[in-house]
Every structure is written in C-alpha cells, then in structure tokens.
Deep mutational scan, measured.
Amino acid sequence: EETVVIALYDYQTNDPQELALRRNEEYCLLDSSEIHWWRVQDRNGHEGYVPSSYLVEKS
C-alpha cells in the first residue's frame, strides 16, 4: 500500500538527485529509510529526494 504525503512548503532545487516540491501537492512516498531525506514521486512520475521535514503524511 502506497503512502501519500503532502508538501507543507515549496522546495526549489538544482540538484538532479532531488525533486522540487509545491506546497499542498501530493506525492507518493517511495523511501523513508533516511531520517532527513525521503524519496518521493510526483504525479508526473518524476522521482527525487526531498527534505522530510517539508512533508506530512496524508491522513
């Protein structure tokens, strides 16, 4: 079962390993094994790492 997370803030990045976030957008959580950086996928299928503190699990 996939976990959906919501971005609390915008996040901009130039790092190809990371993914930009848009506030209030939903993302699919792929990997939360790292404490500070979670791997997520956006609705267009793009994947990357984002700061975990910018996300909240959708209830």
Results as ranks from 00 to 15, higher is better:
W37C: 10
W37V: 14
L19S: 02
V40K: 00
A7K: 00
N24M: 10
L8W: 03
W38C: 08
E57G: 06
T3A: 10
W37E: 06
S33P: 03
L30C: 05
Q12F: 09
S52M: 06
E57R: 11
P51I: 01
V56A: 14
R43H: 11
L29P: 00
G48M: 02
C28L: 13
V56M: 15
N24I: 01
E25N: 11
E34Q: 14
E2D: 12
D15E: 14
S52H: 04
P51D: 04
N14V: 12
G48L: 03
Q17F: 08
L30V: 12
R22Q: 09
H36V: 07
V56L: 15
E25G: 07
R22I: 14
G48C: 02
Y9H: 08
S32Y: 10
Y27F: 04
V5M: 10
G45C: 05
W38Q: 03
E1P: 03
D42R: 03
P16H: 12
S33N: 08
A7H: 01
K58C: 04
V40S: 02
L30F: 03
L55K: 00
V56S: 11
L29W: 00
I6R: 08
G48T: 02
H46F: 07
R43D: 15
G48Y: 03
I6Y: 09
Y11A: 02
S52Y: 04
V4A: 09
L30Q: 09
L55A: 00
L21R: 00
R43W: 08
E18S: 10
Y27G: 00
Q41S: 11
E25C: 13
Y11V: 02
S52E: 05
A20Y: 05
P51M: 03
Y54P: 00
Y54V: 09
Y49I: 12
E34G: 14
Y49K: 15
Y11M: 03
D31K: 04
A20Q: 14
Q12C: 06
R23I: 13
D10W: 00
H36T: 13
A7E: 01
E47T: 07
P51A: 01
R23Y: 09
D31S: 09
L55V: 14
A20I: 11
Q41C: 13
V4W: 10
H46V: 10
Y9I: 08
L19N: 01
